[in-house]
Computed example of a mutant assay.
Amino acid sequence: MDTMPIRIIDKDFNLLAEIDNYESLIFIRRFYKVGEFELHININKAYTDKLIDGNLILLGNKLNKVGIIMHRENTYDQNGEPTDTLLIKGPTLKGLCNRRLIIPINGAYDSYTGSQEAIIKYFVESNCINPTDVSRKIQNLVVAPNLNRGFQDKWRSRYEVLSDKLTEIGEYANLGWDIVLNFNNNKLVFDITQGRDLTADQELLPPVIFSVDFDNLKSRHYIDSSLNHKNVGYCGGRGDDENRLVQQVGEVSGFDRIESFIDCSQAQDITELKTMGHQKLDELKKIKSFEVGIIPYGSFTYELDYDLGDIITAQDRKLGVTMNAKIIELKEIYEVNGFNLEAIFGTNIPNLLDKIKNMAKQQSSTAIIGTGGNTITNIDGGSFV
């Protein structure tokens, strides 16, 4: 087996055990979203009593590959009988940001203007590091120094899940984020990640080209979809009916123009209205995604020649596809028969949960304005008239 030892530590960084004889381990790293892991192990093996809620698993000495145990169960066979196999699951360390909402401090919304990196780190600082309510503070979590990556921007939020907002800003700004261990200082460090340009079009770094022709790809699944794509938005601000301020974003014309109404009723002025419109229109961009099985030690070596967040060139001559795309997800699979690696290049494909969340946000923002100022929105997005 191509084993990856896992170390079990507690939230205070104490090493509890090390295991390398599990049945299978799937560890999913995501550039914009929170990753996850799933471990299968026989309960009779040593140290399985340490695989409990709240402890962390660390893959080898990879400080950026850490999971939080949040689920433990005995699996069942085809007859419904319990087996000796334990199923252990949880999010990556980024899942700490699932545990906090963005709480407005002054006024209906919490907003920040600055570089996109500064905005992301502001929301983490305000809700995890130095919140007004000290009970919301996450011990040992720190934010790395701000390098002001990304463009000048403005974002606002109200009782949204912090990780969802970080994903939304990150996808718009093309910035990833992560939380990694720092054993030297016993800290969990939040920082922005960007990746490298390894495409065939540049000459600064050795290019990475994934292609069946180069014997570094196995399975592949390509999606190029504009079914939910919109490229021109009519953004509605404050006001009702003919008195409502509406501004257009997007300049596409003719056959290719696809219009959508975008609710931006929380915008304070025209500048913010257009900014929010562009941000929300970006969520309706075309989907270009290449899901592949990678031969991890073929012509390129995983984590040496390429890694999560890098931009590579993917080719499939049979499908007539050549695309420069960011590696947004990597699934590491450790099993008895060896190590497998699956990747997603390109654009996140919205799942049903993503679509429900977007619908809820639209309904919530509409409720805040209401009719005649008589609607009050509660924390969960419901409304009382």
Rank of each mutant, 00 (worst) to 15 (best):
N348A: 11
D213T: 06
V34D: 08
G346N: 03
Y172C: 02
E291S: 12
K137P: 00
E283W: 09
K11N: 14
I344F: 00
T113D: 08
A108F: 09
V212H: 15
V143I: 15
K318I: 15
P104M: 07
N64I: 08
I138T: 08
C97T: 15
E81N: 13
V208F: 01
I312D: 00
D133C: 06
K137D: 01
Y122G: 01
M276T: 06
L166F: 04
M70W: 06
R100H: 02
Q315V: 14
N184R: 13
Y47W: 13
T75H: 02
D307G: 10
D178C: 08
D2Y: 13
L198W: 02
S226D: 15
F123A: 02
W155Q: 04
F210W: 03
I287K: 06
Y109M: 11
V66S: 07
S364I: 08
Q116F: 00
Y47T: 04
L166M: 12
T371F: 12
D133K: 08
G107R: 05
I52N: 09
I379E: 14
T167L: 09
A118S: 13
Y302K: 07
I69H: 04
D153H: 05
G35W: 06
K288M: 13
I192P: 01
I119F: 03
D20T: 10
F345E: 01
M4C: 12
T3R: 11
T377W: 00
Y159K: 06
L58Q: 12
I52M: 12
V142G: 01
K121Y: 00
N186C: 10
M70L: 14
L245W: 02
F183V: 10
G195W: 00
T322S: 10
H71Y: 14
S364K: 15
L205W: 09
